[in-house]
Write a protein that binds this DNA or RNA. Sequence first.
RNA 1: GCUCUAGUGGCGGAAUCGGUAGACGCGUUGGACUUAAAAUCCAAUCGGGAGCAAUCUCGGUGCCAGUUCAAGUCUGGCCUGGAGCACCA
Length: 828
Amino acid sequence: MKENYFPQEIEKKWQKVWEENNTFHVDDNSDKPKYYALSMFPYPSGKLHMGHVRNYTITDVIARFKKAQGYNVLHPMGWDSFGLPAENAAMKHGANPEVWTDENIAYMTKQLKMLGLSYDWNREVTTCKPDYYKWTQWLFLQLYKKGLAYKKEAAVNWCEECGTVLANEQVIDGKCWRCDHVVEKKYLSQWFFKITDYAEVLLENLDKLPGWGDNVKTMQANWIGKSQGAILKFKVVDMPDGSDLEIPVYTTRPDTAYGITYLVVAPEYKDIERLTTAENKAKVEEYRANARKMTEIERLSTERVKTGVPLGTHCLNPLTGETFPLWTADYALVEYGTGAVMAVPTHDTRDFDFAKKFNLPMKVVIQDPENPSDCKDSAYTEPGVLVNSGEFNGMPNEKAKKAITEKAVREGFGEFKTQYRLRDWLISRQRYWGAPIPVVYCEKCGIVPVPEEQLPVLLPKDVDFSVVGKSPITTSKTFAETTCPHCGGKARRETDTMDTFVCSSWYYLRYSDPKNSNLPFEKDKVNKWLPVDQYVGGIEHAILHLLYSRFFTKALRDLGLLDFDEPFKNLLTQGMVLKDGSKMSKSKGNTVDPDEIFENYGADTARLFILSDSPPARDFDWSDAGVEGCYKFLNRVWRLIASNSDDISLDYKLEFPLTKENDDMVRNVHIAMKGITNDIANDFQFNTVISKYRELTNAIYEWRGKKKELNAEDKAVLSFAVVSLIKLMSPVAVHLTEEAWADLGGKGSIHDEPWCKWDENLAKASSITLVVQVNGKVKDKIEVDEALSQDELKSVALESPKVKELTDGKEIVKVIVVPKKLVNIVVK
RNA sequence: GCUCUAGUGGCGGAAUCGGUAGACGCGUUGGACUUAAAAUCCAAUCGGGAGCAAUCUCGGUGCCAGUUCAAGUCUGGCCUGGAGCACCA
């Protein structure tokens, strides 16, 4: 081994060897138990950033650790390569997005290889390639056949900047998730996936995911937004056109129904024009026009003062026989529930604000018997008992929810209802760089799916990327014009493409069978490898990708394509990489280029550092001094091996008993083996793993420093310690340990070696430090033999001069002995 | 407002079960080696107080209570930061 550590030299060398030897190839047919370790695949944006480095290093160490533990590990990589940035770059340079994407993939692949990641590159998956998107289209057709893909006219989110519609999940605070542009509402006919059919199971099955963090699970639960209540229907008594009409409302508070004093419909409510009297028509029209102009953000702001206008008509409350007026107000949302709200100002804060402003009547129907409120200043929303509610007076309100709904059911004006906040997933995008939606529109036959044997529907190449204000795909002369697969007549192809989140909702399945040209994947193979045992990625996908993928898996299971219902058994959401306390970003100018780190320190240092300072789930603050520290540590390990290489051999033999010093050294190694293995098993605490590398290294140095000449026993102990250290470090410092292994005469790769086994009897110190407390405060520490009984420990403690001094003349009330650890003497 | 999550030295963080608070590292300070520097090595490093000193002593894990021989850890009530959802009826 060379005297000095030159990472750049050895890293290149071993990366080449691994590639030539196919070291990380995964065999489908292995007797070993399977383990599937997966990082969320990247968008090929150009260059890796430190978030990628962190993500892939974490998963790589897990994959290597599991492989060493005897698992057959699937650890693949691919590219989420459809999407708007490629198209925008193409429009800017007048080139094809495919060229830009391919270049980025090539560059980032090179970087991933420089990081020394153990991918089986034979399984690489690229979503923008026809051999992949053919199957995205095929899956669309299967969902269509099942009625899970459908087209409808709806108010959708439109981002003018991106020139396309967006899914609800892609609207963050009323703005586009990608470009922050304010989102508008547009009425368009678009394709949707019926994720709402799965709302209940998607919610329920969160309980089947103990390996997911509570934060992600509650975010999904909130997003699905289940609520239980009732639909109550109210007859309009004075329809201007004399017709009959019932207005259904959804409420979670049927217990307050005796207190209804008005009813609100959304400005977009479907029957609103019929419900408006002639004298109110002008005002209502004006109000509705105003509501249309407002952005989502303005409208949904809770800060805003309530607005609204009366319609002039009235409804009958069948419970009381009273009538109440109808209003329209934009605090009622047309998309949720029925688009109409029964208003009980005394027990709902929003209704209260509205009623105060417009001087509407209020009626108290729920009271805390101990402390009744008249609801003059605020709504009373706490539990209580019913008052002014006819036969239900005196009933606790929780009970009344059920009782009043039951009465409504009996009398035909209501029903129980479970409501979800989740909406169907809008998947149409008015963009070029995505998988074309495989349908055609025929003048005679209507919507006709493209037959499976005609897949893939290829993206056209004769496209003008310099157009503004419409999708480039519509400039193709050849694409849209087609014939109907059904009748052979004139037809037009769908020019919208699919949301890229459709492509990424099933890529983890494709890795199980990436080259299959007859199916997206063979059922046996997907069932063998899935679910993913450990998924690692950023928290930003807590709802988007992770919810869509769960939906896809459930839908594909129902289609009979696979046999499991959750795709990701364990999920690790890694924290962000920060610099100077804020997220690395180009606009802040606080980014660190991975290439520079590889060049200056090598990949092993980068890997070690990114794992060292924080546990994976927490944010990680990048510091140049920290990188330097890790580099120094690797140098220290290198010097340890290089300067002792004559005395280290792989066929050492430890013969017990050893001298005390050597015995302690051997124990330290076993303690490290146990500690490191447990730390990885326990939520992948790599930061403490690395501190244990340092502790062991320090211990070996200290031990070595005490010896001048090494005898045979010393050499065996040194060999055992150093060889164990490099094995323990091999998942992290992948190149350095491989070099050391080869230099010490190891056969094959250290990455094919089994994980260290420790001896429980040796994985502890030879003697014990007994902590002696008096009244709970540490007063003395005594080295004792491990074998001492509780009584012996007690007398050792009581004989301590310190204790004698402190207990002299006092009454010993109690002595607590914790075996092998501590004695607490309680005195008065 | 609702939900989740976190709060420990100058900093990142450590501490299976309630049992030595501050592992490991960064930084800082002092020293060794060197003509000098880099590199490397050694030592100190939570705060207050006492002592020439070894050392002793008191306080300390966001705040206030409680349980316990013993609380960073458990219970109750707050405070602060981060994240998600939100006029969802």
